[in-house]
């Protein structure tokens, strides 16, 4: 087979990437535009980044977003990992199929429905809406992503490793922390990062569950854009893209490492 790229492959690759990234590139480019008018290029400048530092509204929103993302993804990672363990380990408990189906459901649930139902819940229990309700909502919807990622790792986990640890006098709890967790850590971390990015760019669920005083960055941007796109928005979006890119990159590096470890483990099992 001819393994070099044919002109057809090259064009489709270029077109595909162009389709994906030209809008983003434009946004990044215009964040360095000296002109106030978004559509006119007037030379390179970083003035909008400086102006951003003065814009308390946007900075506040960024701060809220980062805090929500961090707290919610942390909690979602713990809960999601526990759920994954329960679902893969405790084989045939009553209603197992239903539960595992239920962890997948939120992945395909329209966000509007998730948001609305959470809002109803918060209203029903009389919880004051704001920072904490957004955080709780984000925990709920990102947790299942973590569970799915960790579960796929646990399925291939060699349980005799845990048995060996128990056999050598290690208690089950300690075994989890010194054997199981280190080995599934790449999956847990990529679950964390997935939850983090999901939480960071969520607009719909946050809009439903927020209250006065807690505006996330996507919400702020959305409301400002309706009054017209300013270069400041471009600047903050560029920063946001930067953060997401770093996280995604880290996640893919981790995934690669995990794949390598899994291959090695399989190799050991096969040769052994």
């Amino acid at each position: 087979m001819n393994r070099s790229l044919s002109w057809f492959n090259v064009t489709s690759l270029v077109l595909g990437f162009a389709f994906l990234y030209i809008p983003i590139l434009l946004l990044v480019l215009y964040s360095f535009n000296a002109s106030r008018l978004v559509t006119v290029w007037a030379g390179f400048s970083t003035q909008w980044y400086a102006a951003l530092l003065e814009n308390d509204q946007l900075l506040d929103a960024l701060w809220v977003t980062l805090r929500v993302a961090f707290l919610s993804s942390l909690a979602a990672t713990v809960l999601g990992t526990l759920a994954a363990i329960a679902l893969t380990r405790y084989g045939r408990f009553f209603g197992r199929t239903m539960f595992s189906g239920m962890t997948y459901a939120p992945l395909v649930m329209p966000e509007v429905i998730t948001g609305l139902s959470l809002l109803l819940l918060f209203v029903a229990v009389g919880m004051e809406r704001g920072f904490w309700t957004i955080t709780l909502a984000h925990i709920t919807f990102t947790m299942c992503f973590v569970a799915v990622v960790v579960q796929s790792r646990l399925i291939t986990f060699d349980r005799t490793l845990e048995e060996a640890a128990l056999d050598l006098g290690c208690t089950p709890l300690k075994t989890f922390f010194v054997i199981t967790l280190p080995l599934i850590l790449p999956a847990v971390l990529s679950g964390f990062m997935l939850a983090f990015t999901l939480s960071m760019d969520d607009l719909v669920i946050a809009s439903f569950t927020t209250g006065p005083g807690a505006t996330t960055l996507p919400m702020r941007i959305y409301s400002q854009v309706r009054l017209g796109v300013t270069p400041e928005i471009n600047a903050i979006c560029t920063i946001l893209i930067g953060i997401v890119a770093v996280v995604v990159l880290l996640a893919s590096v981790l995934a690669k490492r995990q794949e390598k470890m899994r291959r090695r483990a399989e190799q050991i099992a096969a040769r052994g």
Binding site: T160, L161, E163, A164, D167, P172, A265, I268, A269, G272
Partner: peptide, 19 residues
């Protein structure tokens, strides 16, 4: 439980800790 038995086992698959 296994961790309280004065018995050690060498596993057929070795079960060495890869990390």
């Amino acid at each position: 439980p296994p961790y309280r038995r004065p018995v050690n086992m060498m596993f057929q698959s070795y079960a060495l800790f890869p990390h």
